[in-house]
Design a binder for these strands. Sequence first.
DNA 1: GCCAACGTTGGC
DNA 2: GCCAACGTTGGC
Length: 155
Amino acid sequence: MQYWLMKSEPDEVSMDDVMASPNRTTAWFGVRNYQARNFMRDAMREGDGVLFYHSSCAQPGIAGLARIVSQPYPDASQFDPVSPYYDPKASPEQPRWISIDVQGTHKTRLLPLAELRSIPELAEMVVLQKGSRLSITPVTPDQWRYIEALLTGAA
DNA sequence: GCCAACGTTGGC
DNA sequence: GCCAACGTTGGC
């Protein structure tokens, strides 16, 4: 069991969109960065916890909690010539990019980036490190527990 | 819109 | 394999 922070632009997919999806589940596709891809392919597994983060927006921060509900599988958009995520170098025989299904569990209050930065217990979070741009970053169990308790009131 | 930081591309 | 140029991310 591992924990992750996943960035989404709320104009594309917001926490509300996830919670409104059938079974509160949506396919995470369009990752086109090898480091993030490798996390999905090699480390993410069904049941892992996800901090759902809104990026590139007026109020960046954590918007809810989710979990991984599938194994990794090839991202269909890489084969679609009209998709903005089309990759001519990928083929169904040799897929390059990975999707995974994410299910929303709690929509929470927005935990703003500035507040995250103000919490000493969270100072080591990968997403807070200088220059960090990865759309998927690992979260430690301690960081997860702290944020989960903060946002859900769970002990 | 600005800009820092990082990733990718491609010539050599 | 090096590295300059370019593109992207993402907070502000």
